[in-house]
Amino acid sequence: MSGGLTGLFLCGDVMLGRGVDQILPHPLDPVLPERYVRDARDYVTLAEAVSGPVPRQAAPDYPWGEALALLDAAGPAARVVNLETAVTRNDAPTPGKAVHYRMDPANLPALTAVRPDVVVLANNHVLDYGRRGLDDTLDALAAAGLRTAGAGRDAEEARRPAEVPLPDGRRLVVHALGLASSGVPRDWAATARRGGVHQATGPDDPAATRLLARLRASRRPGDLVVVSVHWGSNWGYAPARAEVSFGHALVDAGADIVHGHSSHHPRPLETYRGRLVLHGCGDLVNDYEGITGQQRYRDDLRLLHLVSVHDTDGSLARVRLVPLRSRRLRLERAPEQDVRWLHDVLGRISRPYGMRIDPAPAGEPGGPALTATPV
């Protein structure tokens, strides 16, 4: 072991369907099976009403905006994203859902633009267009050379972690699980004969218990272990008590980082036994501009989570939080006043969980940022 640090990029939900798909080079039929919005282009119109004109036939990297250069400057050893979009042309939506996300497979360069090392699929949108849509998604990601975790054509594949080589012969191991509290339907769970997601009804479900056992049994010396969990509601700062306990159980079983997502805005960062628990990374890319009702959470503000851990034992060194905002369906650096707002909110909600939020030292690349460190 070198005794140095390993950096990872982790983010919350990446939604490249609906309005985002419509501005890319190969938009799908815009008809939506939603109650209130029947045309995906209406989400683009909502964004334009608050932010200005949005280009059509935009380059695949357009939605990421300034985030790509910031990530390149940070140089993380690996990048892990949660993709909440089916990559399929199948037009038969899963019945009974209020919201459906899909993107044309020809628009997949909008995902590969961020160069993800692991694409997490254990969430409540990957089967929006059924198991045929899931199969198409798995095929498209495999054809692009992308590793996946959290979904598969059977339970064994859905449970299988993704592995990424790290320097010095070490490996990053990413497990993924979707909890029912985030809206993952019970019948989406993969079985021995049916594809689906690695799903648990709750922290006490046998699937969650088996994950804890696998973590204890499978860890090798030098591994950096991430468990990516889709959990909790869309709004609100307080994580459920049961999910806080589950995050601790994952660390006790061998996780170095618990990568939580589902909420549309950031939730507390926690340090537990020297390990990082992200209770909610917030959305990163979506088509929510102009949708009203939850403005107090400032879901137009997004974060790049750049996590540094010690090579010797996987313990947390710090998290650099790079604030961005969505404008014209594109990520740009957040203004200084928005960085201060995030500093105040994240500091208030994270301190009870043992994490301190400070302005990042001046002179670091990437402009105004925040640093999270254990108290």
Rank of each mutant, 00 (worst) to 15 (best):
P374E: 03
G19S: 06
A362D: 14
R318T: 12
A162W: 01
G3Q: 06
H100W: 12
L127D: 10
C281M: 14
T94H: 12
P266I: 07
P93G: 09
R325I: 06
W64L: 05
H261K: 13
L370T: 08
Q295S: 14
V87T: 13
G65Q: 00
P268G: 12
A158C: 07
V20D: 01
V244Y: 03
L138C: 11
R79K: 07
V285G: 02
V81D: 04
T371N: 02
L215V: 06
L342E: 07
A208R: 06
L16E: 00
S262Q: 15
L138A: 06
P53C: 05
L278K: 03
V31T: 15
E156C: 11
V44L: 05
L138S: 05
R153P: 01
A73V: 04
C11R: 06
H248T: 11
A317H: 15
E163W: 11
H310L: 14
S350H: 07
D256V: 04
A189P: 03
V375M: 05
G150R: 07
M355R: 05
L28C: 01
K97C: 00
G293Y: 02
E332W: 01
A78L: 03
P359Y: 12
A113W: 00
D104G: 02
G232L: 03
V114S: 05
V31L: 14
E270C: 12
Q295C: 06
A77W: 10
G222M: 08
D204T: 14
T85L: 07
D39C: 10
L306W: 01
R318L: 13
A58L: 09
L331C: 00
Y237A: 15
R160A: 11
E157S: 11
S245W: 09
L276Q: 03
N107T: 07
A142M: 07
P167D: 15
R38G: 15
A142N: 11
L304I: 04
G152P: 04
G247F: 12
L16A: 04
R193C: 10
T45D: 15
A142W: 01
A249T: 04
A73D: 14
L177E: 00
W188S: 10
L250W: 02
L346C: 07
P206M: 05
I357C: 11
L134V: 09
R193D: 15
Y101V: 09
G133I: 02
R220E: 15
W341E: 01
H26L: 00
G195L: 10
L71Y: 02
P53K: 12
T371R: 13
D187S: 13
G96R: 12
H26Y: 13
G347T: 09
G222Y: 08
V339S: 03
L70K: 08
A155F: 10
V322M: 10
G7C: 12
V44I: 08
L284C: 03
V319E: 08
F9E: 02
P359S: 11
L303Q: 02
A77Q: 14
G366Y: 10
A362I: 08
R115N: 10
S51C: 07
W235T: 13
T271C: 14
W341M: 00
Y237G: 11
G314F: 00
V114G: 03
G3E: 05
A40L: 08
D300Q: 14
A74V: 05
V319S: 06
E332M: 03
